[in-house]
Design a protein around this nucleic acid. Structure first.
Length: 913
RNA sequence: GGGCGGUUAGCUCAGUUGGUUAGAGCGCCUCGCUUACACCGAGGAAGUCACUGGUUCGAGUCCAGUACCGCCCACCA
């Protein structure tokens, strides 16, 4: 019997799935074949199709990547691979971000260990150290991207500090300046005393903390003498959380309708220590119920006071230096740190008897995102980007639907932020970054120039270049990032890449940088290029640790993707990251999910090994893949192909809707629960059936190959390595390329609903029999005789499946009976009754004289359940409102359901007699 | 102070436009080394879909409100 069914027993595949053995080699093959670049030799792109472009969000070159980056890369890469398989010219452009402030914070820490500092090294040597540092991290990061499997076009790798970016930055700023959208002005900016630079509003992180609210008495000035009133009680008491800013006070404000103070508005009070007389003003921002109802105004060091000061034309004083120590007040506090000064001032106020009270107070303190220092609002002359017109255009883009944000709910936060946006301070007093291309002449005129060498003369007074000096400041790192989608394609030059790949297709990133980055790209992109930078913004959720905590290096809960990849393979990590992810919603991530994904890859590996090993000897090993002969297919084969088509359709839908978790779910279930659990098990019997002719067995085998081929193609975007490896061992069709990565995406075939219904019925039968046996404690290995009633509608397919059913249900001999009555008549004894849809069976246990208690309990449970559902179905149908109002199809379905349940109840009752 | 998200099995999460009996992975229980796979196979237990009310023939799904958790934005010093 083995002559005709002799199968190839060895395959090219090792027995065990060891991703570490082949992943690196696969990546090398892709590189060698030049398939990543859209214009690469092996790309097989169909130039008539629209290009698909993803410009990768450039990771910071501050160190190594974490699992969140791996998720980013995976999601981008799966979209890219899908598009590539569709034949679209596909560009996945990788890059790196110089991360100005973040990089400086990291480098500062590193050099501090060697006893060095920014100041000790000086600008030039510091920047040399930085170059050396990023040269190292750059290689680490790029290596990680490859391990994850990113199919990036490495020939187009870009860096936000490369010459192309530098040119784009200069040009962008010059144009914004020319268009009146960049201006230099004094404003209240956020100063980080640790980083010694200004930072944007977004980089200030509010921290709720418990502080104190002090009450301080300011004495009224006697306008006649110009000295404080003799009566020490002739005073106004203000409430403050920051006594040290008293030195910068230029007014006291009360609410205009506050009767307690109406008589004092217009009077002056003397500020302690600096002996400055300032007015009492009325302004509705003051909350009468808060504190004493009177508030000291420090326009130079408080955001609210700054606005108040502008409304009232108050003087604005700066009392801190770069380190946030008191300076230029002419008091003994000069040189003291702000908190030291606070204590000294409080003590001195108390000594004077002007410290009236102190109580604990909950307040929100802004801290630096990078260094955690308390941010000091401070007056400084800086460059700003006028965001009003830019934001208006950005809003138009999302409102009109030209740019789509996913998940959609983020459009609301986008709206809110864009409509309340403030001008963007882009000056940074840092060293690592793009120098602002602005020059000042000795007369104070500014000239902005996009020329690499700077302007030739002051554009206002014509002084020569030699007399001009460049602004020492650099740009906010997000300024160069904001140009990323087009600076990477060659802008400001009119390059072929820019024309072909811009606007880009999808911008995938974390929702946490929607404002930092996405907003700026949209605003700058529309203004500078006249086009939107991308059509779709896809916002991923953040990866958290298994306990829901945000991963951070300081917490030590950062997952290193390489460690995980070493253990389970890149495919498993990728699959796990995609499988558990819902767009815009954070995901907890731990080893359990990766192990599950690894098991799935292992399953696929072994299924493929089985298929390869079961090739009928009549098919030569090097045969080209061909479709199975439809005329020779049995119900199982038709079912296998139909289910692959169903998975194909599900995957297509998931891809189209950016529901990538749905894609993995469809493939996991399709491959494991359907193809492996039933498809292969049913096929085994036919493949081994010596009574069948070669052509029939070949058709079965080609069915398996065909379905597997489809599944591997569909799975490739998520699990590129193992699918490439397995696909390489499968027979290829004549027009297939060597590599799966550039093979064509499958077109979902027709479903065969008849076959699906037939196999569904027999699957239910097998499950019923297995369940009955297990509940009755039948030895799992034993074969028991089964009598089966098959309705006429299933007779044909039963003929084809008989042997498989025997095997799967361990039913031997399997004997059919003419009608149900015959089955009933044979009942009794120790037989186990099974009612499965229209099929009904009796498992003969032999020997036992009565139905066992366990078996009786099983049937009773089934009956009770069926009766419950039947009652519910009848109740629904008895409801006149339901039958008259529900759609006809739903009512029909309910009627059919009722009939089915009624029949089932009848038959179960018969079994229990 | 606004806005958003979450609340579904012991744990982590799906659940598309409201429509038969709410699913998966992990974990748990019982069997099984049946010639692809023990990283496996077969069977099983387990959920008042946070709570209250409403709309509807019908609600995990829509509406209103409540509670708790989390996030974003915000000029009560």
């Amino acid at each position: 019997m083995t002559d005709t069914t002799e199968a190839k027993t060895t395959t090219d595949l090792p027995k065990a799935y060891h991703p570490a053995d082949f992943e690196a080699a696969i990546y090398e093959r892709w590189l060698a074949a030049d398939v990543f670049a859209p214009d690469g030799e092996g790309s097989r792109a169909d130039e008539s199709l629209p290009p698909f472009t993803i410009i990768q969000p450039p990771p910071n070159i501050t160190g190594s990547l974490h699992i969140g980056h791996a998720q980013r890369t995976t999601v981008e890469d799966l979209m890219v691979r899908h598009a590539r398989m569709l034949g679209r010219p596909t560009l996945f452009l990788p890059g790196l971000d110089h991360a100005s402030i973040a990089a400086q914070v990291v480098l500062d820490r590193i050099i501090a260990k060697a006893g060095e500092s920014r100041a000790s090294l000086g600008r030039e040597r510091y920047l040399e150290r930085m170059q050396a540092f990023v040269a190292e991290t750059r290689e680490v990061i790029l290596g990680q991207q490859r391990r994850v499997g990113g199919s990036c076009d490495w020939s187009r790798l870009r860096y936000t500090m490369d010459e192309g970016s530098a040119k784009a930055v200069r040009e962008a700023f010059a144009r914004l300046y020319r268009d009146g959208l960049a201006y230099r002005a004094e404003g209240l900016i956020n100063w980080c005393p640790g980083c010694r630079t200004s930072v944007s509003d977004l980089e200030v992180i509010p921290h709720p903390e418990t502080g104190s609210l002090w009450s301080v008495r300011y004495h009224l000035v006697d306008e006649a003498t110009g000295e404080p009133e003799a009566d020490p009680d002739a005073a106004i008491t203000v409430a403050t959380t920051r006594p040290e800013t008293i030195l910068g006070d230029t007014a006291v404000a009360v609410h205009p309708d506050d009767e307690r103070y109406t008589g004092l508005v217009g009077r002056r009070v003397r500020i302690p220590f600096v002996d400055r007389d300032v007015p009492v003003i009325a302004d509705p921002v003051v909350e009468r119920e808060f504190g004493t109802g009177a508030v000291k105004i420090t326009p130079g060091h408080d955001k609210d006071d700054y606005e108040t000061g502008r409304r009232h034309g108050l003087a604005m004083l700066s009392i801190f230096d770069d380190a946030a120590a008191i300076a230029n007040t002419g008091t003994r506090y000069d040189g003291m740190d702000r908190y030291e000064a606070r204590q000294a001032i409080l003590a001195d106020l108390a000594a004077r008897g002007d410290l009236v009270g102190e109580k604990p107070h909950e307040l929100v303190i802004g801290r630096c995102e990078r260094s955690d220092d308390v941010i000091e609002p401070r007056l400084k002359t800086q460059w700003f980007i006028r965001t009003g017109p830019l934001a208006a255009a950005a809003l138009e883009a999302t409102r009109s639907g030209r740019i789509r944000i996913l998940p959609e709910r983020f459009e609301k936060t986008w709206e809110h932020w864009m409509t309340n946006i403030r001008d963007w301070n882009v000056s940074r007093q840092l060293w690592w970054g793009h120098r602002i291309p602005a020059w000042q002449c000795p007369d104070g005129h500014w000239t902005v120039s996009a020329e690499p060498g700077g302007p030739s003369a002051c554009e206002t007074c014509g002084r020569p270049a030699a007399e001009l000096s460049q602004d020492p400041d650099i740009f906010d790192t997000w300024f160069s990032s904001g140009l990323w989608p087009f600076s990477t394609l060659g802008w400001p030059d009119d390059t072929p890449d820019l024309r072909r790949y811009y606007p880009t297709s999808v911008m995938e990133t974390g929702y946490d940088i929607l404002f930092f980055w996405v907003a700026r790209m949209v605003m700058l992109g529309i203004h500078l290029t006249g086009e939107i930078p991308f059509h779709t913004v896809y916002l991923s959720g953040l990866i958290r640790d298994p306990y829901g905590a945000k991963m951070s290096k300081t917490k030590g809960n950062v997952v290193d993707p390489l460690g995980m990849i070493d253990e389970t393979g890149a495919d498993a990590v990728r699959f796990a990251l995609v499988h558990g992810a819902t767009p815009g919603i954070d995901q907890r991530f731990g080893p359990a999910k990766v192990e599950n994904a690894r098991n799935f890859a292992n399953k696929l590996w072994n299924a493929t090994r089985f298929v390869l090993g079961s090739r009928p000897a009549s098919i030569p090993p090097d045969a080209l893949r061909r479709s199975p002969d439809a005329a020779l297919l049995g119900p199982a084969e038709r079912w296998i192909l139909s289910r692959a088509a169903a998975a194909n359709a599900d995957v297509d839908r998931g891809m189209a809707e950016f529901q990538f978790a749905e894609v993995t779910r469809a493939l996991y279930d399709g491959i494991w629960s359907e193809f492996c659990d039933w498809g292969l098990e049913l096929a085994k019997v036919r493949l081994a059936d010596a009574s069948l002719d070669d052509a029939t067995r070949e058709a079965t085998w080609w069915t398996l190959v065909s379905a597997l081929d489809t599944y591997l193609r569909l799975l490739h975007p998520v699990m590129p390595f193992v699918t490439e490896q397995l696909w390489g061992a499968l027979p290829h069709a004549a027009d297939d390329p060597d590599l799966l990565i550039v093979a064509r995406w499958p077109a979902a075939g027709e479903r065969d609903l008849e076959a699906e219904a037939e196999i569904g019925a027999f699957v239910e039968l097998v499950r019923g029999i297995r369940n009955a046996r297990a509940e009755a404690r039948v030895d799992a290995a034993s074969w028991l005789p089964v009598r089966l009633y098959v309705p006429a509608s299933l007779e044909t397919s039963f003929g084809a499946l008989r042997t498989a059913i025997e095997r799967l249900a361990r039913a031997r001999p399997l004997e059919t009976v003419a009608d149900r009555a015959a089955l009933a008549a044979d009942g009794g004894g120790g037989a186990l009754a099974v009612v499965a849809g229209d099929l009904e069976a009796l498992v003969m246990r032999g020997g036992s004289a009565e139905v066992g208690d366990a078996d009786r309990a099983r049937l009773e449970k089934e009956l009770a359940e069926a009766e419950r559902y039947l009652a519910a179905a009848r109740a629904r149908l008895a409801n006149e409102a339901f039958t008259s109002k529900a759609p006809a199809a739903v009512v029909e379905g309910a009627k059919a359901r009722e009939a089915e349940l009624a029949d089932q109840v009848e038959r179960l009752k018969a079994r229990l007699v």
